[in-house]
């Protein structure tokens, strides 16, 4: 995690490199390091779940405990926020949670690449979530979905103003959802790199930033969990709005 031997800039870690250049009809679809780490995340999660569910022991082992904890954590969250109707969408929410969490945690490995520190990745996920949730809300409630933009009990003269504000507020969802995750991951990893650079530059005195980097790494673990948690809980809240648009 410390700065590389060549004195890389702290932002070097976010650079995307093409591993297998590919080009389909003029569109650059190269297999990049970002794609590689996404694949690694998916494989890691799948492997964890397969190993965990392979035996299905009554008294769970370590791996099975991890899987069960994650499962119960997400189920509880979904049930608390969306009620039992929300459990139908558990696979979607669970996938999002595990993917974000794994990508965040894998990013903490030295020499790895943090997929979630790229706005392109988080924005894509956020847009998929928002579009899916909006379509779901329209399919479930029809026109009633638009109650979301006009809370009941609002005086009529206030309605035009309020609807515009509510629409803007709705449109901020994908922005805040994606920016929060990406900004947190990027800021954390940049800070780590900067202080890692100090360790090398200061020589013997580098002990102080080294201690700081150790503490910061712990904090980054917290942030990795927390951001996955926030991303998921917001998905649940938006899902709840789609299922129950009446305020």
């Amino acid at each position: 995690m410390a700065a590389g031997a060549e004195g890389h800039s702290p932002l070097h870690q976010f650079e995307i490199t093409r591993l297998v250049p590919m080009d389909i009809a003029g569109v650059d679809v190269s297999f990049t390091n970002a794609a590689l780490w996404m694949v690694i995340s998916v494989v890691a999660v799948s492997a964890l779940m397969m190993i965990a569910t392979a035996r299905g022991a009554l008294v769970p082992g370590r791996v099975q405990s991890v899987a069960e904890l994650a499962y119960e954590f997400v189920t509880g969250m979904l049930r608390d926020i969306c009620g039992t109707q929300g459990l139908k969408y558990f696979p979607f929410v669970f996938t999002i949670f595990l993917f974000v969490l794994t990508a965040n945690l894998l990013g903490l490995l030295p020499y790895s690449f943090t997929v979630t520190s790229h706005l392109a990745v988080t924005a894509t996920m956020a847009l998929v979530i928002i579009v899916a949730v909006t379509l779901l809300g329209l399919a479930k409630n029809g026109f009633g979905f638009f109650h979301l933009f006009l809370p009941s009990g609002v005086p009529l003269w206030l309605a035009p103003l309020l609807i515009v504000i509510e629409v803007i507020s709705y449109l901020t969802r994908p922005v805040s959802l994606s920016v929060r995750l990406f900004a947190n991951m990027m800021a954390g990893h940049t800070t780590l790199k900067v202080f890692g650079g100090f360790v090398v530059a200061l020589g013997f005195l580098g002990i102080a930033p080294l201690v700081f980097v150790v503490a910061l790494t712990g904090l980054e673990f917290l942030v990795a969990f927390l951001q996955a948690y926030i991303f998921t809980i917001l998905t649940c809240i938006y899902l709840n709005d789609a299922l129950h648009p009446h305020h």
Binding site: M77, G83, L162, I168, S169, C236, I237, N240
Partner: peptide, 27 residues
């Protein structure tokens, strides 16, 4: 204004409400 409403909601709803439950319009 929309940002303010978002903040109000984020602090008031605190990550979840009972489905169809308490009013949460911050406007």
């Amino acid at each position: 204004a929309a940002g303010m409403i978002n903040v109000l909601r984020a602090t008031r709803v605190q990550g979840g409400e009972p489905p169809g439950g308490a009013p949460k319009n911050g406007g």
